[in-house]
């Protein structure tokens, strides 16, 4: 199986603080990989290294075959990124956001037109094309944000708490988009605080104090920790955390 993220002993230190402490794992092509951890466990720092935004202190990693030390520009071209905090420009219209994001990824004007139209059609948002993003309900914004994050057909998309604050119905519609992207061969790397969403992942890693404390399928993790739910697994591991709080 093709591995699109390969991470070996990846470490990030800030002064004498080791934010990410020698993490090792692989993610397969088309896999939905859940990246969980308590606040302050090192998830964001790890993700920044994987996205080519932060140089590791030591260890190795390749993203879509590109090295996190030397090939950060190629990494950025081959990934998509969406977070709850930043995704779209509120004061641009739906159409303008699509054109803008497709444009930065170097997609040609003709393709932008075609991909953009396809995208609007798929989301059922043709009538909203000329509306400001700020006027859309949050659920629509999130779905549009995800679709623009994968408009350049990246190998991997990183989703940082994509469903925070969204109602339960919209949250499920959002996961439908994730499944669809995964079926099309896009690898999904997702963080969440909703433990039921951990169940939707093929495999889940749980970070505690900068280390990967557990990594397996949800059902294996529950068996390993004698737990009924992922919530219990998470609680079991994260309450041992020494740092942060």
């Amino acid at each position: 199986m093709e591995q699109v993220i390969v991470c070996n002993g990846l470490t990030k230190r800030f002064g004498d603080f080791t934010a990410v402490d020698s993490i090792t794992f692989e993610v397969n092509k088309g896999e939905i990989f859940g990246f969980l951890g308590a606040n302050g466990a090192g998830k964001t720092t790890a993700m920044r290294m994987l996205c080519g935004l932060s140089t590791p202190s030591s260890g190795k990693a390749t993203i879509a075959g590109f090295d996190v030390y030397k090939q950060t520009e190629q990494i950025k071209k081959n990934i998509g990124y969406m977070s709850q905090k930043f995704s779209l420009y509120d004061d641009l219209t739906v159409q303008e956001n699509i054109t803008f994001f497709a444009g930065i990824y170097g997609i040609s004007d003709a393709e932008i037109k075609k991909n953009g139209d396809d995208l609007l059609l798929r989301l059922g948002m043709q009538d909203q094309a000329k509306k400001m993003v700020s006027s859309l309900p949050l659920g629509w914004k999130q779905k549009l944000a995800f679709s623009t994050a994968v408009i350049h057909k990246p190998k991997i998309v990183f989703l940082d708490e994509p469903t925070g604050g969204v109602d339960p119905v919209t949250r499920r519609q959002f996961w439908e988009l994730i499944y669809e992207a995964a079926d099309n061969g896009i690898t999904i790397f997702v963080t969440t605080h909703y433990m039921d969403e951990a169940e939707y992942c093929k495999r889940v890693s749980i970070m505690v104090d900068g280390k990967v404390a557990a990594l397996d399928t949800p059902s294996n993790l529950k068996e390993q920790f004698g737990a009924n739910t992922m919530d219990e697994v998470f609680y079991h591991l994260a309450r041992e955390a020494k740092r942060g709080e």
Partner: peptide, 12 residues
């Protein structure tokens, strides 16, 4: 929304 974006352990 005192617990938005807070992990399950801190929420408890």
């Amino acid at each position: 929304e005192p617990t938005t974006g807070v992990d399950p352990v801190s929420r408890k």
